[in-house]
Design a protein around this nucleic acid. Sequence first.
RNA 1: GCACCGAUGGCGAAGUGGCUAACGCGCUGGUCUGCAAAACCAGUAUUCAUGGGUUCAAAUCCCAUUCGGUGCUCCA
Length: 498
Amino acid sequence: MASLELFNTLSGKLETLEPVGAPALRMYACGPTVYDYGHIGNFRTFLHVDVLRRFLRQQGMAVEHVMNVTDVDDKIIRNALAAGKGISDYTARYEKAFFEDMDSLGIERPEHLPRATEHIPEMVTLIERLAAKDIAYRTEDGSWYFRIARFPDYGKLSKKDFDGIEDGARVDVDEYEKDAARDFALWKAVKTGPDGVPEPSWQTALGAGRPGWHIECSAMATSLLGESFDLHAGGEDLMFPHHENEIAQSESASGHTFARHWMHVRFLLVEGKKMSKSEGNFYTLRDLLLKGHRASAIRYLLLSVPYRHQMNFTFEALSAATNAIDRLRTFHARILRGGFVAGANEAVRAATAKAAAEFTAALANDLNTAEAAAAISEMVRAANSSADAGTLGAENADEILRVLTTFDGVFAVLVDRDAELTKAALVWAQAEGRGDEASAELVARMGQSDAEIDALVAERTQAKKTRNFARADAIRVELTAKGIVIEDAKDGVRWKRK
RNA sequence: GCACCGAUGGCGAAGUGGCUAACGCGCUGGUCUGCAAAACCAGUAUUCAUGGGUUCAAAUCCCAUUCGGUGCUCCA
């Protein structure tokens, strides 16, 4: 069992990640705010956290993973109001879509998926504890704030130095009266919308209102994992202020270290720029599926650059990832098909063992997904080469399959669910009135049933037997146009959707 | 403005003091094939943004410059 050396934002060093005080590693990862469909930047973070949990479990470590769902916040309230819906009605569809997208991308479900709105009492209790220490204070409008001056360690995660900021300076921000400009909201008093209707709120001991964003994570993490736990993960943009504030609240209340280890996944750029709707480079998973890209290729691409490096998403790279997966799947199928000589080829055996060792070592070294994938490529080449020469042994095949299983336990791209997922996306788009967004090529490709393809392939095989190559080639051209690729192998004809 | 990160072949990218600079994709040629596809073989950076420095030795450490990105406000 390899132990994972993971970069810890808090210490700025690589540290061994291990459970303390419990058999399972307790980890918390900030989840989605369900006000819209998730975009590929969101999913880069969730995918790398997925790699982390898959790798730990593969190494024999139990994991207790919490991912929250933020189902109340300013954007949700605003959008729900605009849609004329209650917030839970509004968020339900996006929450459902989020979990569907997680499944499409092969992201495992965390052990706990708490919703913010179902943990209001814990948040209130936490704020009350802070109030009892005079760390939380109430302003005239009924909101509650956190007094940053009372937490000297503030800034320890994001390495910010707030000495230059005057404590206690009275700065008016918005309509609220805070004691210091940086003090952040723990509880927001109920407001009235433009049409005089009060916004959604909870009646609690703190007054009527709703929780601040940061307190949600502190309360849910603490109630599910305890006051101290092993790892907290999230996107790099959450480091400040969100995670910094979580630490301040939680450690002020408990007097203990909140999370020992912090992991931050760096940003995803699209075509060299930060994703934004105005730049026209903003993509949800569903957008990409409708353009004809495969879910597996998106997963593989987003994992191809290690989490601690900023990654640039391009369509060229996406097509490269698609081809890379094809090679892996073709290889996997070849090994499964069998028909190898008895025994083992020692050179391949050595290459297989080397790949297995390097794969695990690469991931154990701060989740170096790029190096892990490279290790597998070398095995693939050695084995294909040997199989071409007729020297690959049945024992080699067994060993190779074990390594591929290990690989796929983390990367999860070998099993082909792409056609099914793309079809589901098409059905969804039609139901949403967005069917016209699907690319024409995709519609043609999906329109062809397996039986129809089989019939055409059989006709082509017959034509070839009678040496009617013109007809055979015409069929191949027709299928190619629909994204179907034919392979004439020694042991038969195969086809696949490109 | 302040802070932080990055710059490696046509593209993506690993490597952070010492073997011929991984790996994937692409491209070129070859093997196989009726032709393709798949697969394999060979080739594709004498060189790691630029300029200086440290060292017996640097893509890897230091300084400067240029360019790109991010945070400082909601954000994965």
